[in-house]
């Protein structure tokens, strides 16, 4: 589906939810649930937990839809942030991360990106982000990836990459500073 058309369908449906329109929520669900389930499943690693989280996400969307401002944010950005945060909350509440295999600081990890089949893909935003991520050092990129895709905490990342906690914080913060500066130019 055409990206802009999809974005506008989702945004229009979100705008109808605060009036109590269940069909609008169902439209949002139909257009976005596979992506959000994928996100929750990636972080949690278990289907039943990801299902619980996705259910919570759409109940949150039902309650909070009026806070979504289509003029300021992309609907997928808003929804993905809710899904990631709910999944991370679940992870933190139940146990440590599922993804704790060691990460080699020097070796690139594939993130399995498949830009052809996402609602965010191939946008200018995504091209720019991937360009800026390429500009980071490998260990910085790997640390951010562990946090973003695996739901790792600073402690998890320090363990996986076998560096002191302070070093890990420093890596991540430095990487975020570089990322912001690159995205703004």
């Amino acid at each position: 589906m055409d990206l802009d058309a999809n974005r506008s369908l989702i945004a229009t449906a979100l705008a109808r939810i605060p009036g109590g329109d269940r069909a609008a929520l169902q439209t949002v669900y139909r257009l976005t649930s596979a992506k959000l389930f994928g996100v929750a499943l990636r972080i949690l690693g278990e289907r039943s937990e990801a299902e619980d989280v996705v259910q919570e996400v759409y109940l949150t969307v039902w309650r909070k839809a009026e806070q979504f401002d289509a003029g300021r944010a992309s609907p997928m950005t808003w929804l993905i942030a809710i899904a990631r945060n709910r999944a991370i909350d679940r992870l933190r509440a139940t146990r440590s991360s599922r993804h704790m295999e060691p990460i080699d600081s020097a070796a690139e990890i594939a993130d399995g990106a498949d830009p052809a089949d996402s609602m965010l893909e191939k946008s200018e935003d995504s091209a720019r982000l991937y360009g800026c991520l390429d500009g980071l050092a490998v260990h910085e990129r790997n640390a951010l990836r562990g946090a973003f895709f695996d739901g790792n905490t600073y402690d998890d990342l320090a363990a996986r990459m076998n560096v002191p906690l302070g070093t890990m914080k420093s890596w991540v913060r430095r990487a975020m500073i570089k990322l912001k500066s690159c995205l703004e130019t």
Partner: peptide, 11 residues
């Protein structure tokens, strides 16, 4: 969030 491109949708 554009990084979530790297996560395949799962119905």
């Amino acid at each position: 969030s554009p990084w979530a491109t790297g996560i395949a949708p799962v119905p």
